[in-house]
Structures are given as structure tokens and as C-alpha cells.
């Protein structure tokens, strides 16, 4: 499918070098992954997110994990990640805050009608406020309907883009600029909600383990192609709102994993497991 983005010979001398390198030695073509980072031009370009941003790191790893970026359409929502998408060389739509899963459902259905012979991956990438609070209705109903989409939450445990309000994903007691008394109920267990809502594949991962993150993204997208909805939650700590040093973002992830307050976990339906086993067999010949 590389030819989809191939530069026409007549335009070769005027195409930007960055565009050419995306095609000649980049993610288009489908054989690059997180372990190859640093050896090719990434889908994401220079973005305005803060120094040490956990969300930016997660996003960078997620984009490098996409199995088929030239046929992927990302549906985003308002929030910090929306500042990065204009710099991403993947089709992406900015939807009204909270509506992302409704938009993605319609888009996926329209694409399957328009391109019945081509696999198009529709992937929602949105914040925790957009996913677990304001868009929860749209998110859960897309799961009930078994829409063939992947939902990825960039969980920074706050409404970061609007200056630090608590979200349903903040931990109990979390103090933020606009939650000075501390949050008074516990973090919502969205992975368990997703599993109970009928998702075929659910995972909670972190950017501290890029291989695991990549495996979750790929499994989620494959499950959405073949069996049903999938959900992936990525812990992405925010140094700006949680007021730690930008060089401590990964330490933060590791300490939360260690003390058990952020558990990496995976739920796989029988059907999805059969699919993964089959693909594994094909891969190993």
C-alpha cells in the first residue's frame, strides 16, 4: 500500500525532504515499530506540548505502533493531545469534546461502505476527561454496539489543557490547581467497564514499557478489525499539573506501577485470543 503515498515522479524535486523520507525510509509501508525509533522519520513532528509531557511520549509511541498508518484515521477530541495532531502525518479528525466515539462509529461504518475491500483502522485517541467523563456516554454506547473501533485513552489523571481540574480518572485525594480540597471519590476503573461492556480486547499500559504498549495497540487494532470494540488506557503523567520535575515522568510511572496504584492489565475475549494465536502462527510460518 506504499504506492498510496508515493510521490509522483514529476513532483519529486519539489516535495519536502521530510515527506520523501516518510515514504522512502519511514512508517508508511508498515514495517516500522517502536524498537526502530530513532532510525526513521516519525509520523509526529515537533509539537507544542510541555517539556517532559507523558502524554506526548505516549502519543509518540502509539503512533509508532500503528500497524497500518496509511490506512488509519484517528479521531481526537479537545485536550492537550489536540495540540499535537496538527503535526501528525496521519489522517485525523478533531471532534467536539466528548463526541469522539460517536464520530468514529459513523466514520468506520461509512468507510466500510465506501472501501469494502480495504481495511481502514479507525482509532480514537482522547484524554481521560473526554473519555471517562464528558464522553463516557458515547464511549460506552460504542462498546455496547460493538463498533469496530479502537479507543485509546491518554490518562493524565486531570483536565490538563484547561489548567488542572480533577477528572474521574484522578486518584482519590488528588490536589490540583482547580481541585484544592482534593478529589473525594476514587479513580474510575474504565478497563473493567470496557470489559463488562463487551470489548473484545482491553489493556492498561504505560509508556515505561514501549514493547508492551506496542503489543497492546496492535492487538487492540487487530481485534477491532476482526471481532469487536477494543480499549487501551495509557498512563501519561503530567508534570505541569501534578507539579513534579519534567525529568521524573517515567519514574512516576514506575513508582505507580510498583505501589499498585496503576496496574498494567489485559483482558482478551476467547474470540480475540483465537485471532491472536492464528496470527502468531502465520507469523512464525
Amino acid at each position: 500500500m506504499r504506492n498510496l503515498f508515493q510521490v509522483s515522479a514529476a513532483f519529486e524535486d519539489i516535495m519536502p525532504a521530510e515527506y520523501k523520507s516518510l515514504i522512502e525510509n519511514g512508517p508508511f509501508g508498515g514495517d516500522k515499530g517502536v524498537t526502530d525509533l530513532g532510525t526513521f522519520k516519525e509520523l509526529l513532528e515537533e509539537h507544542p506540548l510541555c517539556a517532559g509531557c507523558g502524554l506526548a511520549l505516549s502519543l509518540r509511541l502509539i503512533l509508532a505502533s500503528l500497524p497500518n498508518p496509511e490506512h488509519t484515521i484517528i479521531v481526537g477530541s479537545t485536550g492537550c493531545s489536540a495540540l499535537a495532531f496538527p503535526q501528525a502525518a496521519v489522517h485525523n479528525i478533531h471532534s467536539l469534546f466528548g463526541n469522539q466515539n460517536a464520530v468514529a462509529s459513523g466514520l468506520k461504518r461509512a468507510l466500510s461502505l465506501r472501501f469494502p475491500d480495504v481495511v481502514k483502522d479507525v482509532v480514537v485517541i482522547a484524554g481521560d476527561g473526554a473519555t471517562a467523563d464528558i464522553g463516557l456516554d458515547m464511549v460506552m454506547h460504542s462498546w455496547f454496539r460493538q463498533e469496530r473501533i479502537t479507543t485509546i485513552m491518554l490518562d493524565n489523571e486531570a483536565y490538563a489543557n484547561t489548567g488542572g481540574q480533577e477528572s474521574g480518572m484522578s486518584q482519590e485525594g488528588a490536589v490540583l490547581n482547580m481541585a484544592p480540597k482534593g478529589k473525594n471519590f476514587s479513580k474510575i476503573s474504565v478497563p473493567e467497564l470496557a470489559w463488562a461492556s463487551g470489548c473484545a480486547y482491553v489493556a492498561a499500559v504505560t509508556p515505561a514499557n514501549p514493547r508492551k504498549l506496542q503489543s497492546a495497540v496492535r492487538r487492540g487494532i487487530l481485534a477491532a478489525r476482526e471481532t469487536g470494540s477494543s480499549y487501551i488506557q495509557v498512563y501519561s503523567p503530567c508534570p505541569t499539573n501534578y507539579k513534579f520535575k519534567p525529568n521524573q515522568t517515567i519514574e512516576k510511572v514506575k513508582s505507580r506501577e510498583k505501589d499498585g496504584t496503576y496496574q498494567v492489565r489485559e483482558y482478551i475475549s476467547d474470540e480475540a485470543q483465537l485471532l491472536f494465536d492464528r496470527l502468531e502462527e502465520v507469523k512464525n510460518g
Binding site: 525509533l37 530513532g38 516519525e42 513532528e45 517539556a51 507523558g54 502524554l55 506526548a56 511520549l57 514501549p210
Partner: peptide, 22 residues
């Protein structure tokens, strides 16, 4: 390459496959 996997910004750190240095 641990640094490459930790950087929140794209295309900052690169790995030279010949010298095997970042």
C-alpha cells in the same frame, strides 16, 4: 536506545546503525 524510548518529542534523538551511538 533507552533515551530514544523516553523522549516525548519526535525526531530529537537518532540512532546511527553503523556507529551504534545516539
Amino acid at each position: 536506545k533507552k533515551c530514544i524510548y523516553a523522549c516525548p518529542d519526535p525526531n530529537v534523538l537518532s540512532f546511527d546503525e553503523e556507529t551504534r551511538k545516539v
